[in-house]
């Protein structure tokens, strides 16, 4: 991703790219770490907060729950139909 987008745009991009597949917080974090590593707002714990906040807007949804390696209960997230309509705000080269 050459253009650095607002973090939540990038979350939408990653989940749109995943299609119908749901991703864990860690998987989303790892896909974005190259772009945002070193930023104060970007960490695995803070990614969970970002995802919960984006989930509240209806753009993504929590599809499944599981326990991670540390024994913490986590959600897996996927883009919603509403979220797909919002991908029009992504740069054209990132929309599909």
């Amino acid at each position: 991703m050459a253009i650095k987008l607002p973090l939540r745009f990038s979350i939408l991009y990653v989940l749109n790219k995943a299609g119908n597949q749901s991703l864990t917080t860690k998987e989303i974090y790892e896909q974005l770490s190259k772009e945002y590593e070193g930023e104060g707002q970007f960490s695995l714990d803070k990614m969970e907060n970002h995802l919960m906040a984006v989930k509240a807007t209806g753009i993504i949804e929590a599809r499944e729950a599981y326990f991670d390696e540390a024994g913490e209960a986590r959600y897996k997230y996927a883009i919603t139909d509403y979220g797909r309509t919002r991908t029009k705000y992504l740069p054209p080269e990132l929309q599909n």
């Binding site: 499944e64 729950a65 986590r74």
Partner: peptide
Amino acid sequence: NNANALQLLEAK
């Protein structure tokens, strides 16, 4: 296991 995780997350 997943059902337990879901319960915990909903409680949170």
